[in-house]
Write a protein that binds this DNA or RNA. Sequence first.
DNA 1: TGGATTAGTTCTATCACGAAAGTAAATGCA
DNA 2: TGCATTTACTTTCGTGATAGAACTAATCCA
Lengths: 371, 371
Amino acid sequence: MLTESENALAEAVLIHGPISRSALTSRLGLSAASLTRLAKPFLDTGLLVELDDVVDGSVGRPTRPLDIAPDRGFFVGIKITGDTLHAVLTDVRAALVDSFTRPLTSADPSSVVADLRAAIGDFDGDIRGIGVSLGGSVDDGVVEFAPFLDWHDVPFAAMLAEATGLRVTVENDLVALAEAERWFGMGRGLPGFSVITIGEGIGYAVVAHNEVVRTREVGAGLGGHIPLAANGPLCDRGHRGCAQAMLTSGSITAQVSGALRRTVGYDEFLTLTAGGDPAATAVADAAGEALGRFIALAANLTMQPATVLAGDGIGLFTVAEPAIRRAIATDRDPLADPIELYIDEPGFTAWARGAAAVAIQSAIATLSFGR
Amino acid sequence: MLTESENALAEAVLIHGPISRSALTSRLGLSAASLTRLAKPFLDTGLLVELDDVVDGSVGRPTRPLDIAPDRGFFVGIKITGDTLHAVLTDVRAALVDSFTRPLTSADPSSVVADLRAAIGDFDGDIRGIGVSLGGSVDDGVVEFAPFLDWHDVPFAAMLAEATGLRVTVENDLVALAEAERWFGMGRGLPGFSVITIGEGIGYAVVAHNEVVRTREVGAGLGGHIPLAANGPLCDRGHRGCAQAMLTSGSITAQVSGALRRTVGYDEFLTLTAGGDPAATAVADAAGEALGRFIALAANLTMQPATVLAGDGIGLFTVAEPAIRRAIATDRDPLADPIELYIDEPGFTAWARGAAAVAIQSAIATLSFGR
DNA sequence: TGGATTAGTTCTATCACGAAAGTAAATGCA
DNA sequence: TGCATTTACTTTCGTGATAGAACTAATCCA
């Protein structure tokens, strides 16, 4: 295990590297002498490397930045839904190397272990750790409850670790996504922000004081039923105009399909809206307004002006940005800091990268120098 | 200055005392040996005292609890509004000893300093520090902007410290209130909660990871215009059914006065509602529904199930509790943890105690043992 | 070419911490 | 009653993290 300062150093270099020792003194609140001392064992074991001197034209000795060694193996991140696994292979900074999606044989835990083991075996490279994320509540590697898989108290991390012989970290999908944004994504360097995902479902997470808020609520999938539009459609629980009803891809395609009297998928909805189809545009504008209101509410109530949007459905942002911005402007106090909006990539990779990110965090925290 | 551990010990005893060394080991994550060492200088200087042994009937040596010495002086907390000062004298745990309210001569900073100096002089006792809270943004004792006083970049802490010769802490009123709830109030021991105040205005603050969220937003008075009712009245900025329009005492009394065609004050509104007056009850129910929605939104979006209500207007809670609870039930996911609602006392003392609390925090953090 | 400036290292004193062993004061059982 | 047991706290001491001070290194600049 690392000391607190060693851990802070490894984390800072991983997130902000390449970075010089002198820049790290102010970031970590340590003396230059301590940085020399702390960096040494990392350089000896090869986890960190010194890059060439950087001469920036200013007076004084050039800096010799530290960085994470590029060849320290790979990490696997796997997001499990009810019937599918999305897997990515990443480097130590959670950058994508390889990825694929395949169906689960069944939702039975040991069957899922077998599917995941096979998936991991299909990646090439020196794998240092596995992260798994799923919708549900997770405590210390045990899946307490996962509604889409119908799991209760499944010690999944231990099961997969035994099957693969690798370090396994299991985490709630939204916590993992928020951790990935905080360390490697749009939220890097921000002390706090909120994360909103739209797609088949609605996801929500909060970071404050440089930490992801982990209450039992995260696993319960809150945020999905926040009321956003007074006249919107009903969701399956009878809420009018809630986030589920306004923003899930299923609800949006149902509205467009109903208006056009034929089945329209989400991609076609985006194409129709971009092409100016009136029915699709009306739905997109209503959804955009709801999303803008959601963003503004989250920023106002978390007091964090930064918001990260992610999920399969964020193609909506491209076709409804004016409506989104308009709703934000309406619901956001003009005296408040303007909302900083970060848009992640669509698709499943963001989710699986989240899983890889928690595996990387876990690997960093448990590093040792052979002591 | 104290070391981090010394500070944590003083804080833990202040908040949770009387508390034994052995109970502190788990709370602070330190060894018993360290607690002996850390407590010694506090006992020597008299800030902490040892109470008599507590024999609880269980096996083993009885505990010898530590507590804050009861005679370590008093603190003054003053909340300034646009034209009034509310002052309290408290003990070191922010418990009320004395209080009064008086008008400000003018909003001019030096005039306010003179008024506050006179007010402080009217308290009896050994005053160890002064806390001042006001609506606006404050940075390190400098009031950057206070709309009700029309102050810009006023170094108020330094001015009052010079005039009184005492340690002065100046803080935003909602941050101060949240700090008071966190250390001495309803939020004691909770890692996170939200604070909603209703009265002449609407206030909002958030605590997460055991810290008050301090962004520039707090000073700007957000939360006031959150949309809460689709069909409510308009606020002065044209938002229909926002928190201002639904919950401020001015808006509530205006609605009741309009319905009854005579001027009705807030206290009479409460009396009328308690007596079953239909017009007043309708307004109270609408306000209660809005407040319940506000509470549920805050809990959902901050992911903190605990909520503290405070402010002059919380008499509304007594007369509209069913409507509030109904709205919470509607907007809160049944799978989420139930919302824990804490109601503070009405009146200005909660605000002024907040100011005293930040003065106490500042005094604890800067204690020394004569080193 | 040498002074100024900034980056980083080495040496060393300090001090916070916990492990281990010891003391204190209760309960509980014979 | 007395002794074992349990829990609370203290004392002693070694370990290790830290920063200050003095140093070296590498650049810019006059």
